[in-house]
């Protein structure tokens, strides 16, 4: 088990956002998490990385319990996260290389940092020469790849991707999805892949969990869940996919 949620509950004040959520992300697999806005997907992600306190249950990463340890106090994070908005996820005053190097564990020397940054940029198909550039000179898709490289710099056991393609144009979305699949194949990465887009999840995930109103209502191999849904809510979601295909929200600017 790489990442395990055991009966996790989260409350914000009087409202309970997650109800006894249990979910496994086994090593080397991509688990897709789908559901509508407000269903609790993002809260689950934030709970895993310690940005949101857990009010009940446990979160276990490679047999060590991490709930109750807020982000920033964790000695080895174990989990890294990539966010939805590429324009908010990189510090505009830091070069791409600095942002990536910051996530590296331990105290690497300058040379180690430079080499590792170059390696990671290459890994996400960006020219290592871009390490000195500021995020402002990058497109949305390129920023998302830098964010991915930064997450990988933390040498995570598990990566959480929270709607990483929903702010991107369709022509760029494909490139990021291809990259995600490639990473998993080549690095054996474990990943919790959150999206509201069933077609996207279908394309990258080995198993799918469906979330509704703070509960996981269905979880199984992607093919089974999407072709033979057992829960009413999953069926409703599938029926709503336009033209039996997908849709991808993003804003026209």
């Amino acid at each position: 088990m790489s990442l395990r949620f055991e009966q996790v509950s989260v409350r914000f004040g009087r409202t309970q956002v997650l109800h006894d959520v249990s979910l496994d992300v086994p090593a080397g697999t991509i688990v897709g998490l789908v559901g509508e806005s407000g269903s609790g997907k993002s809260t689950l992600a934030k709970a895993a990385v310690g940005l949101v306190p857990v009010s009940g249950g446990h979160i276990v990463i490679e047999n060590s319990q991490v709930d109750g340890v807020p982000a920033g106090r964790r000695t080895n994070p174990g989990v890294q996260m990539v966010f939805q908005d590429p324009y908010s996820s990189l510090d505009p005053r830091m070069s791409v290389g600095e942002s990536i190097a910051e996530a590296m564990p331990g105290r690497p020397s300058r040379a180690e940092r430079t080499n590792e940054v170059a390696r990671l940029l290459d890994l996400v198909h960006l020219d290592p020469g871009r390490a000195g550039q500021r995020p402002a000179s990058l497109s949305g898709g390129q920023r998302q790849r830098v964010a991915l490289a930064r997450a990988l710099a933390g040498k995570p056991k598990v990566l959480i991707a929270d709607e990483i393609t929903s702010a991107l144009d369709v022509s760029v979305q494909g490139a990021v999805l291809n990259l995600v699949r490639e990473m998993q194949r080549e690095l054996g990465l474990s990943m919790l892949f959150i999206s509201h887009n069933l077609a996207v999840v279908r394309y990258v995930a080995d198993t799918v969990a469906v979330m509704s109103q703070g509960r996981i209502v269905e979880h199984g191999p992607t093919v089974d869940v999407l072709e033979h849904p057992t829960h009413d809510y999953t069926r409703e979601l599938l029926a709503a996919v336009p033209g039996g295909t997908s849709h991808t929200p993003k804003k026209e600017t």
Binding site: A71, G72, F83, S88, D91
Partner: peptide, 11 residues
């Protein structure tokens, strides 16, 4: 902003 969250996650 998300980059602050990312820095928190990075420890």
């Amino acid at each position: 902003r998300d980059y602050v969250a990312a820095a928190q996650i990075a420890g």
